[in-house]
């Protein structure tokens, strides 16, 4: 069976939980950090912040368009607003405001979308966010982040607060495996190599990072050496890490809990096609919405599993 790696992948916090807790910490350190909420504080976990800093917490009601632009006004007057909702709502209902009041004038707004992907589960497609990265990456000047676990989320919330300019952070609903040790260092725009390998590279973000590690273990059992790279920064991309992976392994599989259209995969392909063309495969949602079900059942049905990542790697290797 699978060889063991240094990754135990024990179940940790949901990334939304880690976001909520980190926000309180940076709120204590910087009084300019403020929060805007659209009646989802108990789900996005900004209620921790609301409890400790009621004066710096603005309840906007279920009105995302106004919320985003209020955030832009707060940022224009020197505040560091974290504007949070489900990804599906803040990106889609607030998109025009993200475009005109945040991206275009480059206001220092931090947008946090929780319940991303299909792993929100039973609530179904109206609440699921499968196009948020495509939308966020289309906004010039935005930094777009999708941390894999609680450690990465804690670090990236802090990095987002100190970065000057608009940021989108993608968080998820379910508890996810812990990938990183507490002392891991993160940087905006830097990929992190989790396992080295020479035959194929498995790239991922969010909860597909742990699945890619598991896939590497499966491939290793078949004598295939897979490199695993976490891409927590979707934009700007770590082009050096991508080019290096393309030239050293000659095959890349990109896995994500997002539509393949407009996701990390096509962004990586854009780099590879320019710098070092190689075989590529994609694991993600293929031109479809999902449905209600348990997160596990949905990830299984829509192919977001280690087995599917391994399968894609084998496909890539056959074409190499």
């Amino acid at each position: 069976m699978a060889v063991s790696t240094k990754y135990e992948l024990k179940l940790g916090q949901a990334t939304r939980e880690a976001f909520g807790r980190a926000l309180v910490e940076i709120g204590r350190e910087n009084k300019d950090v403020v929060v805007c909420d659209a009646d989802l504080s108990k789900s996005t976990m900004v209620h921790y912040f609301a409890k400790e800093f009621p004066d710096r917490f603005f309840s906007c009601g279920i009105a995302e368009a106004n919320m985003v632009a209020v955030g832009a006004g707060l940022a224009s007057s020197g505040k560091i607003p974290f504007v949070a909702s489900f990804s599906a709502f803040v990106l889609n209902k607030g998109f025009e405001q993200l475009r005109v009041t945040v991206a275009y004038p480059n206001t220092n707004v931090k947008v946090v979308g929780t319940h991303s992907g299909i792993s929100i589960g039973e609530d179904g497609p109206s609440q699921m966010s499968i196009e948020d990265l495509a939308l966020a990456c289309s906004l010039p000047g935005f930094v777009v982040l999708s941390p894999a676990d609680e450690v990465a989320m804690g670090a990236f919330v802090r990095l987002a607060a100190s970065h000057v300019g608009p940021v989108f952070i993608r968080a998820g609903r379910p508890k996810v495996p812990v990938v990183y040790s507490k002392d891991q260092k993160f940087e905006i725009g830097k990929a992190i190599q989790l396992l080295d390998g020479k035959d194929v590279t498995l790239m991922a973000h969010g909860l597909m990072v742990a699945e890619s590690i598991r896939a590497a273990e499966m491939l290793d059992a078949d004598g295939i050496s897979a490199r695993v790279i976490d891409m927590p920064t979707i934009k700007p991309l770590d082009e050096a890490a991508i080019t290096k992976a393309a030239s050293e392994t000659g095959a890349i599989v990109v896995s994500e809990e997002h539509l393949v259209d407009g996701g990390l995969g096509v962004r990586v392909a854009q780099v590879v096609s320019r710098t070092r063309p190689c075989v590529m495969e994609y694991v993600g949602l293929e031109n479809t919405y999902a449905e209600s079900g348990s997160p596990e059942a949905l990830l299984q049905k829509y192919g977001l599993t280690a087995a599917k990542v391994a399968e894609a790697a084998r496909r890539a290797l056959r074409r190499k």
Binding site: A65, V68, A69, A72, G73
Partner: peptide, 12 residues
């Protein structure tokens, strides 16, 4: 969008 932006400034 201007009224919302203005409200953010007023709150700040």
């Amino acid at each position: 969008q201007g009224l919302s932006i203005g409200l953010g400034m007023a709150l700040a």
